[in-house]
Design a binder for these strands. Sequence first.
RNA 1: CGGGGCAUGGCGCAGUCUGGUAGCGCAACUGCUUUGGGAGCAGUGGGUCGGCGGUUCGAAUCCGUCUGCCCCGACCA
Length: 568
Amino acid sequence: MRFSEFALTTLKEVPAEAEIVSHKLMLRAGLIRRLASGLFTWMPLGLRVLRKVEAVVREEMDRAGALELLMPAVQPAELWEESGRWDQYGPLLLRMHDRHEREFCFGPTHEEVITDIARRELRSYKQLPVNYYQIQTKFRDEIRPRFGVMRSREFIMKDAYSFDIDRDGMQASYDRMHDAYAAIFERLGLKFRIVDADSGEIGGSRSQEFHVLADSGEDAIAYCDEDNYASNIETAETSPSGDPRPDASQDLEKFPTPGVKTIAELCEMLGITAGQTIKTLIVEGTNGPVALVLRGDHELNAVKAQKLEGVASPLMMADDGVIRRALGAGAGSLGPVGMTLPVYFDHAVGNMADFSCGANEDGFHYKGVNFERDLPAPDTVDLRNVVEGDPTPGGKGTLSIARGIEVGHIFQLGTKYSEALGATVQDESGKNQVMEMGCYGIGITRIVGAAIEQNHDDNGIIWPGPLAPFDVVIVPINMHRSDEVREAAEALYSELGDLGFEVLLDDRDARPGVKFADAELVGIPHRVVIGDRGLAKGEYEYRHRRDTDSRDLKREEVLNLLKESAIS
RNA sequence: CGGGGCAUGGCGCAGUCUGGUAGCGCAACUGCUUUGGGAGCAGUGGGUCGGCGGUUCGAAUCCGUCUGCCCCGACCA
């Protein structure tokens, strides 16, 4: 491709809408342009990258025995009513109707459609296992689209669905996808981690997420390499410490704390740390509000809390009126002493002694509170997010916390959808069996953003080789004034093209600095500079995007080096 | 959806408080000079100042209203 024919516009200044690096760089390098909130056009350069991702995903899916098909993006409401999700899915689902007033939605996912296909196509256990996949545009009417392509409303997803006769078969299909996903992210050259996850809205039992590690990631991951453990923080479990509770050494004292509303304020007033306090959160319950008690420095884990008996799911904090009616005090002055609501204590609270907490009376707190003396010893449950240094569930190490971008998610669905839609096959004895399903998603468009988050510097993008829109950029210096330079550049351009490289020839009549800056912004891995200066010595200048210095090489050396890089 | 902010050429912004000629930088176009790290000079094009309504002799500027976008929270590939 000749730069002069590529209609690429790069930006020196960043549009104000962009906040994270990948979004800024994608706009500046001309990969994407925004149409409306959460809607992006993939420009020619960006599309080249997208296609690279697709190609790798497709190859590995095919290799794993999955079958590609393509389902409609628009889906009839009836199917969603059959699965029960028409009412469940809520505003995330973009609904519409046709000229006959029939209801449809723009598919946010395709469990319903694929299960419908499966129940029509699959008759016998002999046809199983089957794993269908597609690479297709989804729409989710996100509450808050942001970060460019990372959380857009329209996005491209690879979604796959496996069908098996029994649980063992499903497990095998799941394991194959697990391995295929690992191979995909490996090949794409991304640093990633596989973590245990909550199965959430889609339903089902086992589920794991694939996270690209990046500081800007929206998810927190708890992991421990010694113990071979990794989990989304949503599902990382804590257990009671085996240590005995210390004895009480202080007397219970109630004291005035006018204006103290937060743990931080309480700590400042008493000169203690948050770890010596207790916070009491009131959430909506299925049968009136429920109190959740955590150590002051810990964070409530919503996924864990909403699974507790009597707690409303999805989790909702009780509003101030409810709290006041139930306890006679505001949110800043609550505590477990004399608590009249059903209450859950976090494991970590069970080990506390001489702690401080609210007195359930506005403007008053207790200090020197102790279990078994001031309130009954608690049964404890897992309520909080793990923190750095917590023991692993296996007990062999301690947890570290990293941030990640979720680019893949695999689920064991079981029979949730096959049951609802009646997707059965006959088994060996001729009896109808409900098929066991798994589903497997990869955010194709998100991968592009995630790759940039992980691979960039001050000058721009540094594409991992397999993702690069071009392999090589040729930068001729003064091409329009030097016949030697022009001929050398043209010759190299066509030769590399013949060798199968994707080459960008920067044939613009621009100053060198402009070309260098664009080459770096766009992030093409290999750069070959050709100028009169080097040609006089029979040399080209080569530099990899990751290198800080360039090397003067003979033409043959450049060719060999590129050929070698293509093999590895 | 709740809270905060913004809307002025393609992009980044000033001007708004205190009403009176729409401006700067980048980008684009033309010409000349220049050519190894985002060049210089001269010139050109492009904006109903987000929409609608109001106040006023006069509105980018004041008032009302609507829309769009961004940021902070619950959702997710």
